[in-house]
Write a protein that binds this DNA or RNA. Structure first.
Lengths: 206, 206
DNA sequence: AAAATTTGGATCTTTTTGTATCAAATTTGT
DNA sequence: ACAAATTTGATACAAAAAGATCCAAATTTT
């Protein structure tokens, strides 16, 4: 059951389930059903049960799912039942916002390193961390054993900085630069570009 | 050809094509091929040709695609051959970064309104715009005829603010709050939650 | 004790997505 | 001028994903 291939699209829905379950838990809820989850997410109950059943049996007939239990299980499946150290490269407005964001810690992530190439910024404190010289990035990331980076540098430096991250052993990159970056197959990338999302919606307007 | 139904996933790839074409144009390129585009995007050439052929014939055998022509066509298809006014609600770190971002204007969008509920922030200038009282939001958005909003308020206010946006006539929302919001079927939403993206990658790490 | 919920598994169909192939048009090289 | 190479757009085919039931078993509610 554990080493079966799971479609990417299913993996992508799990964090969504997890997020909603954690919200429910904060609301003081104890149990939920695939139907209720589905209504909150706009996904069919059958789909949710099908997704979850790929990993095991987490529910109880007649009752539904124990929220805290299912939360734990999902955290285990997604490997966020631990804390991942994350580096941020490029402390412009976006990097700044990320460095100060309080929502990472309770969902499995912790910012530990900030880098920029601007002498004006190096040494500054943002969100409790000191911005370090990007020249030292490879060594510092290696030393800290950081495997995840968020990339918020200008487009024109994105690939070059990515290469350094790869050299430093980073295995997952969240890329805020509006460009596709080249990476080896054993490294993961996710992209965030607000304009891309906006353009996806304008197609349907009017 | 024009009013045929096009799958959502295809529409989602068009902005990606557009972004890469615009980059190529900036590099001084004149023509490209589905193969080159595919290599830069990690998408098969066949997929790209199939996607484009849903909307018409934009290429030339033996030559490929004229970059500026295809760019224009895609902008037309995506309705970004015009400028869309956008409001930002919630001027915390994220709203701040969005308000100051210079990458919207050349891709079809223009920030025109900022709102927050914090008396300390109201009246402040960010990125050339004055933060306005969220109490006046519905009226101001209606008056300006704004149809697109970016939502960067705390989770606990997301739904309530969304309801106001709907009342104001907003038809597309880019939601940065880590929660699913309820909206009628004729309104579009896109979600951005960095943690969701990170959790999607940790599944594959180790 | 009966009725109502709800899961997890099975099956089946439909839709969607992705891949492969190929003729026709065009460019490039000789 | 002619042959070889490139590239599109269309079609056909294969794979993946989603959706629709259905149902037995377990549990809760009435």
């Amino acid at each position: 059951m554990e080493d079966k291939f799971v479609p990417n699209i299913v993996v992508g829905r799990l964090p969504l389930y997890l997020r909603t379950l954690q919200l429910m838990s904060q609301e003081g809820r104890r149990v939920t059903s695939s139907q209720e989850l589905g209504e909150r997410l706009g996904i069919s109950a059958a789909q949710i049960r099908k997704d979850l059943s790929q990993f095991g049996e987490f529910g109880k007939q007649g009752t539904g799912y124990n929220i805290d239990f299912l939360t734990d299980q999902l955290r285990q499946i997604l490997c966020v039942n631990r804390v991942w150290d994350v580096a941020i490269v490029g402390i412009g407005d976006v990097g700044h916002a990320l460095a100060r964001y309080q929502g990472f810690s309770n969902r499995g992530f912790r910012i530990v390193l900030l880098f920029d190439n601007d002498p004006q910024k190096i040494g500054m404190n943002v969100g409790g961390f000191t911005i370090q010289d990007i020249s030292d990035m490879v060594a510092k990331i290696k030393e800290a054993g950081v495997q995840i980076a968020m990339l918020s540098v200008p487009v024109e430096h994105a690939q070059q900085v990515t290469n350094s991250l790869l050299e430093a052993g980073v295995k997952a990159i969240l890329n805020y630069a509006p460009i596709n970056i080249s990476i080896p197959v054993n490294v993961r990338v996710q992209y965030i570009d607000p304009v891309l999302h906006l353009q996806r919606m304008t197609y349907y307007l009017e």
